[in-house]
Structure formats: C-alpha cells, structure tokens
Amino acid sequence: MTAKIDLPNLEDDFNDSPISGANASLTLIVKQISAAVKLPMAMPKGKRREALERYLALFTEDKIALFMVKLSKSIYVKNPKFSIDFMVRNDLVNTLLTGSIEASKVSKYYNVKIMHV
C-alpha cells in the first residue's frame, strides 16, 4: 500500500522567474524614484503595490526613464508630501511628460505656447 503524499509543486517554486523579474524591476523603479526625489521610499505593499504595478504597466521603459530625469528636476524633489501613492493618484508620469498644458498650470500668470523643434 502506498501512501498518497501531497508533495508541494516544487516546479512552481523554481518557475517564478517572471514574478521575481517583475519584483526586481519594481524595486529598481522605486529606488530610482527615491533617488530622483532625494527622499527615502519604501516598497508599497498590498493594494498600493498592485496600483503601482498597474500604473507602471501603462508606460514603456523609455518613458519611465525619461520620467525619472524629469522628476529629478521637478518641484517634487525633497517635497515631504511626495509618495509613490501621490505619484499614482496624480498621474505624475503624464503630468511631467506632457509639457505645456501642465507647464501653464504652474501659475495663473503663465500662458505657455508650444513650438515643435
């Protein structure tokens, strides 16, 4: 008689490279954001983490790289109110990358025109 033993699916444990790859890139992005705004950032957990993953999935790597450059020169640097949550809620990637319309919002005194070069 042989006992039926439920062995854990070891394959699943080793076949998690896509998940760990995503983890690594998410960690890297959080680190980059932290470096850009010069503030310590903790990796979000639970629903916040899911929201961040969903949000970042909307953009290409190039766009995210450009966003990091813009973020590091933006008014959010060393802004104590800045958080990953704030970034997702305010659609900061689009806000910083779209240009003029957002640039005009900086102050009511501006009326920015666009020139393509």
């Binding site: 240009g99 005009s104 900086v106 005194y109």
Partner: peptide, 23 residues
C-alpha cells in the same frame, strides 16, 4: 521649467511670452 513662485511668475508672465520647445 517656469518658476513656481507667484511673485516671480507675475513679473515674468507680464513681461514675456512663454514658449515651450518640444522636440
């Protein structure tokens, strides 16, 4: 980027046209 401080923004807004160059 444009200055965010209102005191500066008012003076710059009144004396210049702001043009954003986009590649």
């Amino acid at each position: 980027a444009l200055p965010v401080q209102d005191r500066l923004a008012m003076r710059i807004g009144a004396s210049t046209i702001q043009v954003e160059l986009i590649k």
